[in-house]
Design a binder for these strands. Structure first.
Length: 656
RNA sequence: GCUGCUGUAGCUCAGUCGGUAGAGCACAUCCUUGGUAAGGAUGAGGUCAUGGGUUCGAUUCCCAUUGGCAGCUCCA
């Protein structure tokens, strides 16, 4: 006899073998209908997985409303899609078909190259399958038998997976719908009708087992929701998000350009984008000064020997611009990083422990020859400016310095209103030989880093094994762009490598009058100005807070008769340190306002007969609209306060 | 770099089943001089990404190259 305990404490008893869906049916027909899967003693299982014959289980029925349900349904939709593709394109090889953040995909090996033109056909086939409402049946097969099944179906990729990766499994599970069968852990919905509204999204290439040396497969992406309304809402949201795309806004607002005459991945900062960048540079500069950094300048090239010593050269041979030979055996490299230059500065004379920590900062331009397929707007480029600094400190100071760096990053992101970032602790993979230095040092460094991150309660802390730089562990601040891609912005990295005897052999003289080895920290709160501003444009949807806005105010005259007074106001605003322009064209005031609104200019000064007579100004706020008339002095004071406080005002917030 | 899609005016895009192209916005000139999101007229702008092939003829069809986009791989 089996006792089933439900979350509300209710207990049911069964004398025969039952499945979660039978239990649901026992409780009520409505629940049975809504059942997607179940949780048995905390383990996620399918609704049709047989429960034990005897004993006691805690059972939770997962309905459409549960957070896991969508994921399970999408996975079933992936199977549905795979089955439709198999029906339409015989001979297709199945690879894997997991769910992803907003949907699912399935990888196929297939002669015919899929394109969007195939989508309607596949979707129609899927709809037909939903209508047929076949059950998703789970089968457990012994390994040998499973192998035979897969071989008979001609699924060689899955055979390979079962032989190589799942070699130690005694039994494996399959899911079957009609003639379709696939190796899968599950769980799945009980039957196809549980799959709601779905849509195929895109097709792309992907490598078998994520290895570029392997065969390339076709990856079909789709998404599914429980109803059409949710799907439509998602699609609308995607469209909306695309309007925030920094590449679109960068063009519309004339912030930056990329031009083939200069080269791919090389950013031309137009006046408005340059203004934003300069504001951010000034902002960071003030933070650096407050925190005891010293600014330096260094050239963007260096002799190849420098990078040989640093150890960067062999590691990054593929991703740097080729060296320039100025003379026989005298090669210069466009620098892919600033560290060797800063290290060389440190080496100019002996240092006392009293000078440490020594913090050298530079907004340093670096160049990396990224693969063409990697380039993307401002977020992945070939020439960029790191808001870099290198800290030379004693072993004992590492933890405090680390904390300071993380705090600074947290602080600057906070000022800009970033709350939705995550922090990724990148540690080494102990099994890899990619990393330099001894295991004990790594362990110690990783432990210190993690402790500081926990102390600071950094949001969404995750640990990524194998993601560390080759020279030390790091903490990265990661954010998403408008289409959900994650980008690393700020970073704080520990380095035991560059100071070491086989690299630059850095020392400082300790209180014992003996040389000691300093530790280096590399850190960049923004990461790079290019990527950061790219994300920032999307973060604000181009509507920058006043202190960052390239054009803070525009003077609009009601008629050209008031141009003289308008120019007087414009000049006074400029003298007050504001970034201002004037619109004196013979357009109607409505048209001028519309243009200024579309350019997302925070303040408009409307000048007409009334203002001229009363010697005041009429102010229009981009978000709030007409603020009425006031003296010019009052308007300037209001703006200056807003700039000083770095106020963030957003339309969506203002509307609440 | 790989797979797929894609490249027409400054921008967003139509179009040519092969006979060298069009709209809206932007721009210029003129009219208009206005009160909180688009006043009107006229005009200028294109080797239809580049190179080759097929053809009497290619922007259109084919091939290659190159840029862009999405994904993959990579990422100091």
């Amino acid at each position: 006899m089996l006792k089933v305990i439900l979350p509300d404490g209710k207990m049911l008893e069964f004398n025969k073998r039952v499945r979660p869906m039978d239990v649901a049916a026992e409780i009520g027909a409505g629940l049975a209908k809504a059942t997607i899967a179940a949780r048995v003693d905390g383990e996620l299982t399918g609704a049709d997985t047989l429960l034990p014959e005897n004993g006691e289980v805690r059972l939770e029925i997962i309905t459409k409303k549960s957070p896991e349900a969508l994921d399970i349904m999408r996975h079933s939709a992936a199977h549905l899609m795979a089955r439709a593709v198999m029906r339409l394109f015989p001979g297709v090889q199945l690879a894997f078909g997991p769910t992803v953040e907003n949907g699912f995909y399935y990888d196929f090996a297939l002669e015919h190259s899929l394109s969007e033109a195939d989508f309607p056909k596949i979707e129609a086939e899927m709809a037909k399958l939903v209508k047929e409402d076949e059950a998703y049946e789970r089968l457990e097969l012994p390994r040998e038998e499973a192998l035979k099944v897969l071989k008979d179906m001609g699924q060689t990729l899955k055979v390979e997976h079962l032989t190589e990766t799942l070699a130690d499994q005694e039994t494996v599970s399959f899911y079957q719908q009609g003639e379709f069968m696939d190796l899968c852990r599950g769980p799945h919905v009980p039957s196809a009708k549980a799959i709601g509204a779905f849509k195929l999204m895109s097709v792309a290439g992907a490598y078998w087992k994520a290895d570029a040396n392997n065969q390339q497969l076709q990856r079909l992406y789709g998404t599914a929701f429980f109803d059409k309304k949710e799907l439509d809402a998602y699609l609308t949201q995607l469209e909306e998000a695309k309007k925030r795309d920094h590449r679109v806004l960068g063009k519309q607002l004339e912030l930056f350009a990329i031009d083939q005459r200069v080269g791919s991945g090389l950013i031309l900062w137009l006046p408005k984008g340059a203004t934003i960048r300069r504001q951010l540079e000034t902002f960071l500069y003030e933070e650096l000064m407050r925190r005891g950094y010293q600014m330096v300048y260094s050239p963007v090239v260096g002799r190849v020997g420098l990078y040989m010593t640093s150890g960067h050269y062999p590691y990054y041979a593929d991703s740097q611009f080729p060296p320039i030979e100025v003379d026989k055996d005298d090669l210069y490299l466009l620098r892919p990083m600033n560290c060797p230059h800063h290290v060389t500065m440190y080496m100019q004379r002996p240092h006392s422990y009293r000078e440490l920590p020594l913090r050298l900062a530079e907004f340093g331009n670096v160049y990396r020859f990224e693969q063409s397929g990697e380039l993307s707007g401002l977020t992945r480029v070939r020439g960029f400016t790191q808001d870099d600094a290198h800290i030379f400190c004693t072993e004992d100071q590492v933890k405090d310095e680390f904390r300071n760096c993380l705090e600074m990053t947290q602080h600057v992101l906070g000022i800009l209103g970033f709350t939705d970032y995550r922090v990724r602790l990148s540690f080494r993979d102990p099994d890899s030989d990619k990393y330099v230095g001894d295991a004990a040092t790594w362990d110690k460094a990783e432990a210190a880093l993690e402790a500081v991150c926990r102390e600071l309660e950094l949001p969404n802390l995750t640990i990524a094994k194998g993601e560390a730089a080759f020279y030390g562990p790091k903490a990265d601040f990661v954010v998403s762009d408008c289409i959900g891609r994650e980008w690393q912005l700020g970073t704080v990295q520990l380095d035991y490598n560059l100071p070491s005897e086989n690299r630059f052999d850095l020392t400082y003289i300790g209180p014992d009058n003996l040389p000691h080895r300093p530790v280096m920290i590399h850190r960049a709160p923004f990461g790079s100005f290019e990527r950061f501003i790219g994300i920032l444009i999307e973060h604000f949807a181009g509507a920058f807070p006043l202190w960052l806005a390239p054009e803070q105010a525009r003077v609009l005259v009601v008629s050209q008769k008031y141009e003289d007074y308008g120019r007087e106001i414009e000049q006074k605003l400029r003298e007050a340190g504001l970034r201002v322009t004037g619109d004196y064209r013979s357009e109607k005031i409505g048209a001028k306002i519309r243009e200024a609104q579309l350019q997302l200019i925070p303040y408009m000064f409307i000048i007409g007969q009334r203002e001229e007579e009363e010697r005041n100004v009429s102010v229009r706020d981009r978000i709030a609209g007409d603020l009425g008339s006031m003296t010019l002095e009052a308007a300037i004071a209001k703006m200056q306060l807003e700039i000083k406080e770095k106020t963030i005002r957003r339309r969506e917030e203002a509307e609440k």
